[in-house]
Design a protein around this nucleic acid. Structure first.
Lengths: 250, 250
DNA sequence: TGTCGTCTGTACTTCATCGAACATAGCCGA
DNA sequence: TCGGCTATGTTCGATGAAGTACAGACGACA
């Protein structure tokens, strides 16, 4: 499948993205004309390392991922971004680029917005800035938790966590991810991951075949997962609820 | 040593902190009356997990550290904050708290500011917001790199990286950190770390005794360290230089 | 000066993961 | 329908680190 862009060339509501959905109509209408529907395959690159960001992406289904790269070219997933968020936080932070890449991890549907339009909108008072502030914090918490997770939790726990995090962000299953790619994302050897996946399959928690994965038993996976997913979900929920407060915070 | 607070009770210039030093005089003068000099021992807690942040800290020497905690109470260091930055980014992000703790990792000197004063100042136009935006990005990049580092780099490489990162942030050596504490921070067993430290000592890269460490050969440690420190330093330098640009970014 | 507590050195067993090699199976295009 | 490619399954020795236990060494304090 090739990347598709253009004005809603397929059935998709931009406000299926949480951030866009939470914007007041006046703000949404201001940026709406510049939104462009996209459908992107894995592993499309949304931002290059140390390259200026041209578009920010608001997924409605699928997962984008911020990946770190080291001197040897090894890559590891550092944070998932799905319909709860936006890629390109460096634009929000005013720096316009970062040393990480952002790629498509699970085939993605959503809209994109030119970085310049976002910058202009940030200058206006409204709901957008506090929304993005909260999203920034969620990403930071996700990363902080993943640092711990990658250090002290077992491979199968991390794999279960990853599957659950994706499950939260896809509209329909199965979703397209190969074990090879997944292994690279969680930073392990494919054979080791293959064993874990096999266990999950035998236990009836997931089904998969040739790069198509379905979650069959969320609760079962939760039991085998580490608690990181709970920590992250709790913080995301808390921050969503604070936004119902009457006045946006500083 | 006990925590000391009060108006400059010892010799220390708040503007030795990079952020405070980069503020225009008018902005600095506005918050200066609320600044309070502090000297804190390890492992003093600056922010509790899921507790409202009362003060933000601007170190001038020493290191504060954001640590993640899991369900079993295990803790791992996720980002260092020294004289280049400020603790309490959640205040800047408007959320006021986070699920991570922030503690003193290497005995710390600096100033603190009530969160409320910072919030008020953020409402004014000036240099502070762009400075903190950049700092937020540096912290995020640090975390992202650490996710990769914790996953694929060896213990001795990570230990070397840690030593170098501390070396950049302390005014005088030796600095006070026990191997036991360090092992917990980089998330390994103390005996394993002890071996690495012993190698560094035998190679003449460091000297230490009973919780007092000195770096003897920065270049030697750099060779044994992973490249993560370079990635982080490069991004920090880049962002510092963009601040010399005439107009602050959005 | 002796004792206690903290910090550090070292040894050893067990385990998770690495890293590489090879086997199998489904899909696709020529 | 026959390769050829990609995705997955499986094995095995090597290795880094976990986990535990205990010994030595230095400082603080009585």
């Amino acid at each position: 499948m090739r990347a598709t862009t253009g004005k809603t060339p397929f059935d998709m509501d931009p406000r299926g993205n949480y951030l866009l959905g939470a914007l007041p109509a006046t703000e949404f209408d201001r940026i709406a004309p510049a939104l462009e529907a996209v459908r992107l395959p894995r592993p499309a690159e949304l931002e290059g390392a140390n390259e200026p960001i041209e578009y920010v992406y608001f997924p409605t289904s699928g997962v984008a991922s911020i990946v770190s790269i080291d001197e040897d070219g090894e890559t590891v997933d550092t944070a998932m971004i799905g319909r709860e968020g936006m890629t390109g936080l460096s634009v929000f932070l005013g720096t316009g680029q970062s040393p990480m890449r952002t790629i498509v991890q699970v085939p993605l549907t959503g809209v994109r917005l030119p970085a310049k339009v976002l910058r202009d909108e940030l200058g206006r008072d409204g709901r957008l800035v506090p929304l993005l502030q909260r999203h920034t914090q969620v990403v930071m918490v996700t990363m902080a938790q993943l640092i711990l997770c990658n250090r002290i939790h077992r491979l199968d726990q991390r794999a279960a966590r990853w599957l659950l995090q994706v499950d939260e962000r896809v509209e329909e299953e199965p979703f397209g991810v190969t074990q090879d790619f997944l292994a690279q994302m969680i930073g392990v050897q494919r054979p080791a991951l293959s064993l874990a996946m096999r266990q999950f399959k035998d236990a009836g928690l997931v089904t998969y075949s040739r790069g198509q994965i379905s979650i069959a038993d969320r609760d079962g996976l939760l039991e085998r997962s580490c608690g990181c997913i709970t920590v992250i979900a709790a913080e995301a929920d808390r921050l969503r609820s604070t936004l119902d407060a009457p006045r946006p915070l500083a």
